[in-house]
Amino acid sequence: MHATSTRKQQYIGDPLSQQPALDRARLEEIFNDIQSDARYDHELNGCLNCGICTATCPAAHYYDFSPREIVQLLWTENLEGIYDAMQEKIWACAQCYTCAARCPFRNSPGSLIMIMREVAIKHGFQSAKDVLRPFSRVMLKLISTGNQLSPDMITADHFADWGPNISKVDAPLKLLRAAIPMPTLNTMKTAWEVNLKTSIELYTIWEMTGVLKQLETIDENLFDVISDIMDERREDYEDWCESQGDNETRRAAPPEETA
């Protein structure tokens, strides 16, 4: 696990810590946010403590992490334990969902962890900020274009451990991309060419579902950068729409009447 140096200071169950115990109201607020997620009751039904989740968990082999423990903390409403797990442990999960496919109670520890991660973000946990830092390039790309990954992100600099050659044929990336026989993939900055209109639609989704707000909580700088890009691209789109004039071409699929 990468270092989250905050752990010692924030470890509320640590009798040696000089820090005052965390405010109960805050712990309850955090737990309520977890519990009130629409998925919570569906993903947590009880626990037989059988350990099949941990048995099959890839992360449990390498980290001090056990999905059974997470489920137990939630099920027993151990608020301090939940808070503690959110400092570090919840980020160990590899999200393979094997636990969910195995649990005799049909719990989904992997989904519960996702709820906890969302809540860690909402509350601006330092753990979430630390974890998300290396993700910022990915998020910038995804949120501003609608495409998670781009060919020009995969460089020997960023992925030195993937070997000296990203491609075994030595040629400029641009040429290699142009040699992919799918026209949508002859791109550099996105994995496939995403239409501007498509990105603009996605911006509406980000805004209306609170994703930008999440981002603002966790990384204000990134939020600013992304907001600027979104504004710019929206203007581009408006310009294009105006240049078309004719509604027929603006959108092959005319907007539906709202219900």
């Binding site: 999200q95 979430a128 990954l149 996605l202 579902t209 994703v211 999440q214």
Partner: peptide, 30 residues
């Protein structure tokens, strides 16, 4: 095979926690 298409955004969601059930559902439906 066309350009009017986004990622499902689930890689990012499962990795970072940015995103939520509603955003994932909207992307799916779109």
């Amino acid at each position: 095979d066309e350009t009017d298409q986004t990622s499902c955004t689930a890689w990012n969601y499962h990795g970072s926690g940015i995103g939520n059930l509603e955003s994932l559902a909207c992307v799916f439906l779109r």
